[in-house]
Design a protein around this nucleic acid. Structure first.
Lengths: 129, 129
DNA sequence: CTTGACATTCCCGTAGCTGGAAGCTTTATT
DNA sequence: AATAAAGCTTCCAGCTACGGGAATGTCAAG
């Protein structure tokens, strides 16, 4: 199949697929005589795998490691484990930060009395101290 | 004062200050005969204001609008209000997404039985379907 | 007079793409 | 057969918000 079909099967745009090849997340695709890239079912599986990792917001560098590691079948899966746990940790930290942020923004939003700019309580707050 | 002092008063690096001037978030600084930038107390206040907005993760484009709007004292503060509310909304959406993500990652992390790669339950999950 | 701590500009790299230009091939329509 | 539309290719630029580092200039202290 051609690149656009791979794209529609996996939900990853053709542009992105080429980009993944560029950064060697995908290996070089076979080319036809016309220079077009051609793909098969294995490529579909791999890209779907990648897309799922992306949905978990795993960075491409880590996804690459997950892709590579799959060909070393007898090794322990510690690396996989670690990547997932680190990702979970990152998400939890981000959640905490967002929670703090939400509190601050709520306070700020609530102090708005629809004044004019020169009396705006939000701006005063932001300028204070 | 020179740029480094402004930096230390505000917690914004000299590099970043120059960058803000480049993108016109700050107006062009006065220059000495040697070409050095010189700043005063007003610049300190403004940069502190900007830093506070940044802590709320307000995008620079919006911060710019908040900076500009402050010179139109008699206008209503609707713009300010809107920016803060939009920011709050963004944060809430991000929180929701992170919550979903956390659930998915937790499920994935828990299914790890410390197998070898070829039996790894995490990888199986990510490949499934 | 030299050293070190400042300052300047400029360009590259980050992550993960997306958009667009310029130029092929292939397919569909007139 | 000619042409148009769609799909493919490569390459270059731009997005956010800077940080690193090079090459160079300036200023105060020892």
């Amino acid at each position: 199949m051609q690149i656009k079909q791979l794209a529609s099967f996996t939900g990853v745009s053709a542009k992105t697929i080429r980009y993944y090849e560029d950064i060697s997340l995908l290996s070089k695709a076979k080319r036809g005589d016309n220079g077009y890239r051609y793909y098969d079912d294995q490529d579909v599986s791999l890209l779907k795998f990648i897309r799922r990792c992306k949905e978990l917001r795993i960075p491409l560098a880590d996804i690459k490691r997950l892709v590579v590691v799959q060909s070393s079948g007898n090794d322990p899966c510690k690396q996989v484990d670690t990547i997932i746990f680190q990702q979970l940790e990152k998400i939890r930290i981000a959640q905490y930060e967002l929670h703090q942020l939400e509190q601050n923004l709520k306070t700020l939003a609530n102090c708005c009395k629809h004044e004019r700019i020169k009396d705006c309580a939000i701006l005063k707050h932001l300028r204070s101290n």
